[in-house]
Design a protein around this nucleic acid. Structure first.
Lengths: 135, 135
DNA sequence: ACAAATGATACTATTAATGTATCATTATAG
DNA sequence: CTATAATGATACATTAATAGTATCATTTGT
């Protein structure tokens, strides 16, 4: 199983690069060279980051992207939510027959507590923290 | 994202039921009634549990399954490995260009430590513990 | 006007998850 | 001894998520 999918992964790398080059506008062309990712895929990803308010975009020649918010405010958890949907480990897979069952309920309880643990653990990971810009 | 897939889920419920009814041989027919799962799918799952040494099977009329090992010895983590493969959160998605990069490596380090955390947290979950047969 | 960029959006391909189907083998009850 | 009810082995099918492509429109600087 994977915790983060490829788009989340690409996005955090792209954001890292953009953050390290602030005061400049970064184009897809430059990012593709840097990250060696499929160009149309990366375009789609950055577009989504833009409509999500993480990036600000500039059209036209010499256009590109810059951060819309500070790197300390861009959390991995938020990126995961953008690309992968809400972080939920234990969904109720059960049918009625089994649902009130001891086994399933105890299992679910354990998975829920695990989920909380993971969420707490990763909620401090930000673009900034990955770049050693803080902590 | 899901931590456990449906086959792992079904298998732990089935094992729970079988554990609660020890000294009896349990057939697929009975399990399907109890768990309300697709019959051929459950058959495939139990077959895999048998070849993995978790269940012992009896062919022929009145045949079925019983536990091959004690419920305390059947760990969720093992079932996950049987059905979902080795538990690895952070696979190296990177290409060479980005791999020595600060961002990716720190990210990977964090995911690895998270992985360890989760593994530690769930390694004590067994069929027995979910049934309150111990602890 | 041209070139180089993003916006919007629909399409395609691949992989993993989920589930079905079929035929063979075995064992027991009657 | 045969019918039946079970598992063994295995191949196939379906669905959903992931990953990626393609195209046309719009914007903007030179």
């Amino acid at each position: 199983m994977k915790l983060i999918t490829r788009d989340t992964d690409y996005s955090i790398r792209a954001l890292g690069y953009i953050a390290r080059n602030k005061n400049r506008i970064i184009s897809i062309t430059e990012l593709v060279k840097e990250l060696d990712t499929p160009r149309p895929f990366l375009r789609k990803i950055l577009q989504l980051l833009t409509t999500s308010g993480v990036l600000k975009s500039y059209k036209g020649k010499n256009g590109g992207f810059e951060l819309a918010i500070k790197p300390e405010k861009i959390r991995l958890l938020d990126l995961m939510e953008i690309f992968q949907g809400k972080f939920v480990l234990s969904e109720c897979l059960f049918k009625k027959k089994i649902c009130p069952d001891q086994v399933s309920c105890k299992l679910r309880a354990q998975l829920c507590s695990l989920e909380e643990l993971v969420e707490n653990k990763i909620k401090d990971i930000t673009v900034a923290s990955l770049l050693n810009l803080d902590n």
